[in-house]
């Protein structure tokens, strides 16, 4: 069954699954699958606990120019939740007070936040490494023409989704015409040096399956992508990251409506990989929501699983010593990060 055609978010459509509680009810009732915590303990990993925070991931808003059918954020042009300058200032204070070396800016389309450039410039002044998760099409959209150059000037690493190296599956997942616009945006980035050896401008692509199956070998897919994109469009990039679709939000809706939900959850659980479980990104990441609330990862953020276990739950109470070595909040969706070769915002983990 094909993914639903969407032109607005689940939230704007008033769909029940837009609600995080409704999603959690379904995910945590998966029958016949051991609880993630039980699985983790039986594999000898014990409770998940964070270590030193290396990545400070900030979701600066759910507004986006695309309405991708698998989006875990339920982002879209109708979403108005974006981070204020005041909350960004709290993030900057937190960054100044701790050694976190990398800032990972995501959304929605983070570029659509009116304070995006200011925020990036301020972080850049601190000498932190900045990553921006850009959907590509925004970089070629009206009013954003100068953004690629701005990112290059600030040595921003760009990470972008491109579910396939052909238009067929990319457009099916991300919307009609997205592949063509993405190719145009990558050309702009390549012309600035992005994705080219020794340019100092990193440009990575993200593959995620266009359906209810796990991604294949990251290195093999990277070879295919590099060969095909160069041969057909003259495009280059640095690395391909394979990311497993999480059973939340729009992808959860697809799994249920296509009758794939139970089988997909079973596939995630039987593919549990101990090595991937040891390398999950939440161990070294702190995720900040558009409203300043703190989470273990962007997925927990979308499920509104706010930090607890004694760790501060809002950026205004940022305290590095309470945040490092915090107990991570887990659920059945966590199987998505530990299945097969593992999955994280930086791709495979095992």
């Amino acid at each position: 069954m094909e993914l639903k055609i969407r032109n607005k978010s689940m939230m704007a459509s008033g769909e029940k699954l837009a609600n995080a509680e409704e999603q959690l009810k379904i995910i945590n009732q998966s029958s016949g699958i051991p609880s993630f915590d039980t699985k983790l303990e039986s594999s000898g990993n014990g409770h998940l606990t964070s270590g030193k925070i290396e990545i400070f991931q900030v979701n600066i808003g759910k507004m986006c120019n695309q309405v991708c059918k698998h989006c875990h954020v339920d982002a879209g042009p109708d979403r108005r939740e974006i981070m204020t300058k005041e909350t960004m200032e709290l993030c900057l204070s937190a960054l100044a007070s701790a050694e976190m070396l990398t800032v990972d800016i995501t959304g929605g389309a983070p570029e659509m936040n009116p304070y995006f450039k200011w925020f990036v410039s301020e972080i850049s002044k601190m000498g932190k490494h900045i990553m921006v998760r850009s959907n590509l099409t925004i970089l070629a959209a009206n009013g954003f023409e100068d953004y690629p150059e701005f990112m290059a000037e600030n040595k921003v690493e760009i990470i972008s989704s491109l579910p396939f190296y052909k238009s067929s599956l990319t457009d099916k997942q991300r919307g009609e015409g997205v592949f063509e616009k993405s190719v145009a945006a990558i050309k702009i980035l390549n012309n600035l040096g992005y994705g080219k050896e020794n340019s100092g401008l990193k440009f990575n692509l993200v593959y995620n399956p266009a359906g209810a199956f796990l991604p294949g070998s990251q290195s093999e897919l990277e070879k295919e992508y590099k060969r095909e994109l160069l041969k057909n469009y003259g495009l280059v990039f640095n690395n391909l990251y394979t990311i497993t679709n999480m059973p939340i939000s729009r992808f959860l809706d697809y799994l249920i409506s296509s009758g794939n939900y139970e089988a997909y959850m079973e596939k995630l659980s039987i593919s549990f990989n101990t090595v991937a479980a040891q390398n999950v990104m939440c161990k070294f990441t702190l995720s900040v929501g558009w409203d300043g609330k703190l989470y273990d990862c962007d997925f927990n953020q979308m499920l509104e699983l706010n930090l607890n276990h004694g760790a501060p739950s809002h950026i205004k109470n940022f305290n590095i010593s309470l945040l490092e070595n915090r107990r991570i909040i887990t659920g059945q969706h966590c199987y998505g990060c530990t299945a097969g070769a593992g999955s994280s915002c930086g791709g495979a983990t095992a």
């Binding site: 396939f164 052909k166 067929s168 599956l169 593959y207 399956p209 359906g211 199956f213 796990l214 991604p215 294949g216 070998s217 093999e220 897919l221 295919e224």
Partner: peptide, 8 residues
């Protein structure tokens, strides 16, 4: 599908 093939 997992290895990156499409319907075509």
């Amino acid at each position: 599908l997992a290895k990156g093939a499409d319907l075509e």
